[in-house]
Simulated assay, not measured.
Amino acid sequence: MKIGHLVESLDPRGVAAALVDLAAAGGPEEIEMVVVALTPTAHPGVAAALARHGAQTVELNVAPWDPRAVLKVAEALREHGVDIVHTHEVRPDVVGSAAAARLKLPAVSTLHHVHDLPADRGDRIRRTAKVLARKRFMTRTIATSRLQRDWYRRVAGSTAGLSIVPDGAADPGVGTPEERARLRRGLGIGDDDVVAVSVAPMRRGQGQDMLLDALAELPSGEPVTVVLSGDGPLRPWLESRVAGDDMLSAHVRFRRHADPVDLLRAADVQLHTTRHDTMPRVLVQGQGAGVPAIATRVGGIPEIVTRDTGALVPVAASRIADELVRLVRDPQLRRRQGEAARARFLERFEAGGWARSLGAIYRSALGRADAPAPEELDAPETDRRPIGA
């Protein structure tokens, strides 16, 4: 099967980065991939990584509301002989469904967000219309979480044509003692310090400000260093706040260009203190590295982190501080939760399982004889299992 994935761009901070792991895992399912981006990016890393795993890439230059967008995408998909169109995010959904219809191909779409707080009545009407259009024109819609399933059901009225398939990730493996020691040397801290990392983008709503509030509440002398990785518009403000506070300066380090997976493999704890999120991939990667997590109980996060693999906390600095102190002081708890996190990743989120689930959906959309019936792929209307089970 040759699948044409349509994305906004090949930017490493976007959806396309996850498709690298899918390309690496898709061989046993006989999935060939063509990734078509509507807009070009200055970052060649994702395209190169996809190519290493046998996926082809096409970067178009389609401006918003370009009336030729559908024709350009259809031409690219036709040239590469795709069997199914798989779209990701809003503009690719619109353009991709029209291009698929033009080529008489089945179309699949993945929901990557939950639009549950519309600004006004007009916004609610527009978003409802998009969901109903998706239900009509897409062969199948994929929710990455039960949270998305519930939102979709409220708007569309049922889960017919909707499957739940969490995005997977390549197995990062568990870090070695040498990696942990190397990170500590680079941070200039002792071997006995606990290293907690946050690899969320530094932008509004991701909660690094609340994390700094939590660190300001730590008891004096706690042997913990928090690494804030990545970049974003809030980075200068975060750096300025840390530089101006002796307590924070003693506990916080910044690493702009560090590989998030490398940091997670060398960490003792992962921190993800966002105010809203759907199914953050970095938490899945942290589980794969065998790292316990402290995360806020928002969005789809309770479907990743459980009490066996870490701690779920309210959006409150004091509760984050309490759980961090608890993990810092209990190495045996960190070990148990890290082992449970690793096991959960292998069972639920490893990329091979992701590829198998998508393979079943693709075969069904193509009407293959060995495929499940469409209704077998539908998400249940309700789920009796508790979140995190």
Rank of each mutant, 00 (worst) to 15 (best):
R326L: 15
A18T: 14
L211Y: 05
G4K: 05
W65E: 15
D262C: 04
L183R: 04
A156Y: 06
A107H: 14
P12F: 14
D268Q: 05
R344E: 06
V94P: 03
E59W: 06
H272T: 09
A373N: 12
A311G: 10
D191N: 09
Q206E: 11
A214N: 10
A267K: 03
D383H: 03
L333V: 10
L218Q: 10
R384D: 14
T110P: 05
G27E: 15
G14S: 08
L218F: 11
A371L: 10
D150C: 06
L346T: 07
R182N: 03
A101C: 02
I189P: 00
D209N: 13
E350Y: 02
L333G: 08
G310H: 09
L60A: 12
D262R: 09
L60S: 13
R134V: 01
W151R: 01
N61V: 10
I3L: 10
A100I: 08
W237E: 15
L187I: 07
L38T: 01
P233F: 01
G190K: 03
D21Y: 00
A343L: 09
D116L: 00
R102V: 11
V20Y: 04
D11P: 03
A100N: 11
I361Q: 02
R326K: 14
A267H: 07
Q285S: 09
E303N: 12
I189Q: 01
R307T: 14
R307P: 14
T309D: 08
Q287G: 12
D262N: 08
H276K: 01
A100Q: 10
L19K: 07
R52I: 00
A200T: 06
R136I: 08
A365N: 00
R385K: 14
P177S: 09
V194A: 03
D93L: 14
A200G: 08
A351C: 07
V328N: 03
K72Q: 15
V85E: 02
A250H: 06
T273Y: 02
V313Q: 12
V165Q: 05
I301Y: 04
D330V: 05
P372V: 11
L324R: 12
L77Q: 11
W151G: 00
S240P: 00
S163Y: 00
T39P: 01
R319T: 15
V114T: 11
P201S: 13
P331A: 09
R204A: 14
E30D: 13
D150T: 12
L183D: 03
L50S: 04
H88R: 10
G288R: 04
A99Y: 09
N61L: 06
L358G: 04
V46E: 05
V325L: 14
H53T: 00
M202P: 05
R185A: 13
G290E: 10
T273Q: 07
P331W: 05
F349T: 02
L211H: 07
K130Q: 10
A341R: 03
V269W: 04
G300N: 12
L50A: 04
R334C: 06
R297A: 15
F349C: 02
S163I: 00
R256I: 06
R185E: 13
D330S: 13
P314L: 11
G221W: 12
V328E: 04
R102L: 15
V313W: 10
E217N: 02
P44Y: 14
P118Q: 08
V90Y: 09
V7L: 12
A76E: 14
P374K: 12
A160P: 02
A69C: 03
D167V: 03
E303R: 08
A250S: 15
H80K: 14
M138K: 01
D213M: 08
S198C: 15
L22G: 03
